[in-house]
Simulated assay, not measured.
Amino acid sequence: MANLQIGNMQGLPTELTSFLTTLQAQIMNVQNRTDQLERLAAENARLTTELDHARTTIANLQKQLGSQNAPEKNFSEISLSNPAGAVGAPDKNKEPGLEASTWASKASVSLPVTAPKMSTVPSARRIAASVRMFALPSGPSGYEYVYIPRSRRLKHKEVCSSLRTLGVDSSRLLDINFPARGVIGILVHVQYADTFKAKLTTASVEILDAFDPLDPDNVADPKYASLSTHELANTAAMLHHDRCLQALQFLRPHVAIPVGHFFCEEGWISEDEIPTRTTLTNAAGGSLFKRQRSSSVTMSE
């Protein structure tokens, strides 16, 4: 079923075609998550190996340090033979006093010096975020995707960096995705939308108010070239549906839940796909969604 081609559905009833298209989207979503889980399992195995190696190294260093600090009858005859702190054979040609001073100097160099932690002054953005946390809800509620053009293929870090250069508070950007060739979609809260648009307009960045993420023309992948207009519309809806679900995976629970309701009200996801605190906690606990985003990126407020 996962390999079912939409092009083979011609001639089937519309309801069956819609059902198979939805089923295919769900299977693709499960396959993507399975691949993600396998990559995370491999990464976990690698990190576990590195952790075991680090623990072994620490144990060896502690053992060496303990042996260096142990009392000896002829402590003045002990000297270090290498910078790592290994104990070598005593040099009988040196005077005891000189050997003792050499031991002290080398031992002091080998011990790590921990710099005192300096308190950092919180930035204005962090202070504003903390104030919003304790403020009573006021003003309009809801979310809005703002669409702007792009002249070339961009990475999400490049988008964030460029927007910060234009004076945009990147912590207020909830999702960044690429719904069509030459278009960037940015999700913001409606209370920040006007400010965000004003900064874009001031910087002479065009806002694509007429852009529709469900437009069949957005599907530019050559593998869909043989599809009919109706099938392209279903494919565009399926791709946008997946983008929405992916965005929810990277938002903090207190943001993901209301954003999920917004997506549902727009008709982009179903009501049973709105996340709950239980599902979000389980997902975070399993580290399933802690990967780096490949097609979309989100940042919590």
Rank of each mutant, 00 (worst) to 15 (best):
D212F: 10
D212Y: 12
V168S: 01
N177A: 05
P137C: 08
C160N: 06
R132T: 05
E158M: 07
M133W: 07
V188W: 03
T202N: 10
Y147P: 14
L98I: 14
V219T: 11
G167I: 10
R132I: 08
G97T: 12
S108R: 11
S138F: 00
Q191N: 02
A180D: 05
S162T: 10
V146T: 14
Q191G: 00
S119I: 15
A129F: 13
V205H: 01
L208K: 12
S108I: 03
E158S: 12
T202L: 09
K155M: 10
V188L: 08
V219F: 08
A115K: 15
R153S: 14
L187E: 06
G142S: 11
D215T: 07
V131P: 01
G185C: 11
V131Y: 00
Y192I: 02
L163D: 02
R164H: 14
P122F: 01
L154S: 05
R150Y: 05
L136Q: 08
T102A: 05
A115I: 15
D175Y: 06
P137D: 05
R132E: 06
A193S: 01
I186W: 12
G142V: 10
Y145M: 15
R150M: 04
A193C: 01
G139H: 03
D169W: 05
N93C: 13
A180L: 06
Y145V: 14
E99F: 05
T195S: 03
L187S: 12
Y143L: 13
C160D: 02
R132L: 01
G185D: 10
Y143S: 14
I186C: 09
T195W: 00
L187T: 12
Q191M: 02
G139K: 00
F178E: 08
D215V: 08
L208I: 12
S105Y: 03
T202K: 12
P96D: 09
D175Q: 11
T201V: 12
F211D: 11
P112N: 15
W103R: 14
S162V: 00
P216Y: 06
R126N: 13
P137K: 06
S110C: 07
I176A: 00
A203L: 09
P112I: 15
A210D: 11
S123R: 11
M133R: 06
G182D: 02
H189L: 06
N93E: 10
V131F: 00
D169T: 08
S204I: 04
